[in-house]
Simulated scan of single mutants.
Amino acid sequence: MSQMSFHSPIGELSIAEDNGFIVSVDWGWGSIQEETPLLIKVKKQFDAYFDGQLKQFDLPVRPFGTNYQLKVWQALQAIPYGETRSYQDLVKIAGGSPRSIGGANGANPLPLIIPCHRVIGKNGLGGYSGGEGLETKEYLLNMEHLFK
């Protein structure tokens, strides 16, 4: 597995590639650094995303999760840039409950690429486990709204 880390407006991010697929995006600086053509492409797409020039990532991804998580993550990828959906909206698509949608969001191995930050509660933002939590979620939603 190859990994590359970089600085972003929401902190340090590390991306990992395995057999030609992106398998994780993590906050923090990874201990192993190995640039590959795919990881360089991912970094360029992240830069374009944060500059408001990229609305949807176009990358080979392979998130590992349960069948239910995969179904939720697929539904997340259908949420357009700059828009949000409620946990209840996703229940109608993927089944389960708002709590199980939240659990799948929290287990998302590819945040930003699979935009779990676009899911909000009926009475507020809901939660977010990436970066600085809700501060990071607010930043991402505001950035997307600005560049929409």
Rank of each mutant, 00 (worst) to 15 (best):
L39W: 09
L39D: 10
L39C: 09
L39F: 10
I40L: 14
I40P: 00
K41E: 15
V42G: 07
V42D: 05
K43P: 01
K43V: 03
K44E: 12
Q45P: 07
Q45F: 02
Q45I: 04
F46D: 01
F46M: 10
D47P: 01
D47K: 14
D47Y: 02
A48C: 00
A48R: 11
Y49C: 02
F50C: 05
D51M: 06
D51R: 11
D51G: 02
D51W: 00
G52A: 06
G52Y: 04
Q53N: 14
Q53L: 13
L54H: 05
K55S: 09
K55L: 00
K55E: 03
K55D: 03
F57N: 10
F57V: 09
D58S: 12
D58G: 04
D58P: 01
L59H: 10
L59P: 11
L59D: 10
L59R: 10
V61M: 11
R62F: 10
R62D: 13
P63I: 01
P63S: 00
P63W: 00
F64A: 14
F64V: 15
F64K: 15
G65C: 10
N67R: 14
N67S: 13
Y68R: 08
Y68I: 07
L70N: 15
L70D: 06
L70R: 15
L70V: 02
K71R: 14
W73S: 05
W73R: 02
W73K: 02
W73V: 03
W73Q: 03
W73H: 02
A75W: 06
A75S: 14
L76T: 07
Q77A: 11
A78N: 13
A78S: 11
A78L: 11
A78R: 12
I79N: 04
Y81Q: 08
Y81T: 09
G82T: 03
G82I: 03
G82A: 12
E83F: 06
R85P: 00
R85Q: 13
S86Y: 07
Y87Q: 09
Y87A: 13
Q88G: 02
Q88N: 11
D89Q: 02
D89Y: 01
D89M: 02
D89V: 01
L90T: 06
K92Q: 12
K92A: 12
K92H: 11
I93C: 06
I93Q: 13
I93D: 06
G95F: 04
G96V: 03
P98L: 04
R99H: 09
R99N: 11
S100C: 00
S100F: 00
I101R: 06
I101P: 01
G102P: 00
G102C: 01
G103Q: 15
G103S: 12
G103V: 03
A104I: 10
N105D: 15
G106F: 06
G106W: 00
G106Y: 02
N108C: 12
N108Q: 08
P109T: 07
P109R: 04
P109H: 08
L110H: 04
P111W: 07
P111M: 08
P111A: 05
P111Q: 04
P111G: 08
L112A: 05
I114M: 10
P115R: 05
C116Q: 14
C116S: 15
C116H: 05
C116D: 15
H117R: 04
H117M: 05
R118H: 07
V119C: 02
V119R: 01
G121D: 14
K122C: 00
K122H: 06
K122R: 12
K122P: 03
